[in-house]
Nucleic acid binder design. Structure first.
Lengths: 184, 184
DNA sequence: ATTCATCTTGTACGAACGTACAAGTACGAT
DNA sequence: ATCGTACTTGTACGTTCGTACAAGATGAAT
């Protein structure tokens, strides 16, 4: 009375992408160390074998999930650059962008998960550097290279604080601190 | 020709402590998610059963390891307070302390591992807050509460950058940035 | 010297893991 | 229409996991 369930329409590219997305979500919820083939397959609604068919090892699967997260981050960075370009005040615009960024803590959690993983695994370091090099690059035209790096570090510290304490962002304080680092 | 190996001298307190230290080291090397009873037991040179005798569950064992890490961090914080008290220049003293702190990246890795774990598990949050509340408290007498928080965030971001890029600390740049945030 | 609670040690067990693979199905090429 | 490659799906295997527990050893109390 059973038999296997009928096969779905074939779409290898979509499967790869769906697995990467599902992996990203599992990492965000459980962490890199507790990410398993089975959890990813369940999240994606795909059979276990699909994960190993498209990604030879678990490390490959995790790397694909992190890479997808970084791709989304790059999209965000591009939007940040766009918004800053048309902003009358860089400090206030950055504060606003941070407010939005912290609206969904899952993305921030994922990014820091990536950083911790990159601190341990050299192969992941280029992924983690997308943010840490990209943001100062965006800021450099407005405040110079040194202040760009400083402000990036400040924001990273603020994000960490928000992750750990679940507290609200002190927007006016952040704007003021950015202004001090920018030297304006 | 065999038989079990002879029992060692009894010292429950020392065993608890040794297990906490071993757990801390395993977390630093493998991450919270890949920390297992067996890895901790092997690191401590104790039988597997010792881990479950002193800590009912794996979560308890991990919490003990993280708590021990935070205890060491608190000791560091006390030393930071002491050093700042007798320093002619707060910004330069902080830069020097950061240089020393980043000398052994394992401690920094462990601290960020704790932060990421605390972001996911509310029960760990008080542990992670020891640093994020303690450092601003130390800085407050010198630069005020707001600048203390800002400088703490800046330092946290710098540490994250150092973890991800393995780059050297830009000491003069850091001193200058601290001065700007302090408003001096 | 005997007792007993406490600690040590080795082993056992079911669950979950990474990975491999057989069997079946879809679909472009012919 | 058929064929062959590429994909889908379910299951199997050996390993490692968290946890439980039996059996022995210790050492303070009696």
């Amino acid at each position: 009375m059973t038999g296997r369930r009928p096969q779905r329409a074939r779409d290898p590219e979509a499967r790869r992408a769906a697995l990467a997305v599902a992996t990203m979500e599992v990492i965000a919820e459980a962490g890199v160390g507790r990410t398993t083939h089975r959890a990813v397959a369940a999240k994606a609604g795909l059979p276990l074998g699909a994960t190993t068919y498209y990604f030879p090892t678990l490390d490959d699967l995790i790397a694909a999930g992190l890479r997808h997260a970084v791709d989304m981050l790059q999209t965000d960075l591009d939007e940040w650059a766009e918004r800053l370009r048309s902003a009358p005040d860089v400090a206030e615009a950055l504060t606003g962008l941070m407010c939005e960024y912290l609206g969904d803590r899952r993305q921030a959690r994922l990014e820091y998960e990536l950083c911790v993983a990159a601190a341990r695994d050299e192969a992941l370091r280029p992924l983690a550097e997308v943010w840490m090099r990209g943001l100062p690059e965006i800021l450099e035209p407005y405040v110079g290279a040194a202040a760009g790096r400083d402000i990036c570090a400040l924001l990273d510290g603020i994000i960490l604080l928000a992750l750990v304490t679940e507290s609200e962002l002190d927007a006016p304080g952040l704007t003021a601190a950015i202004r001090r680092l920018a030297g304006t």
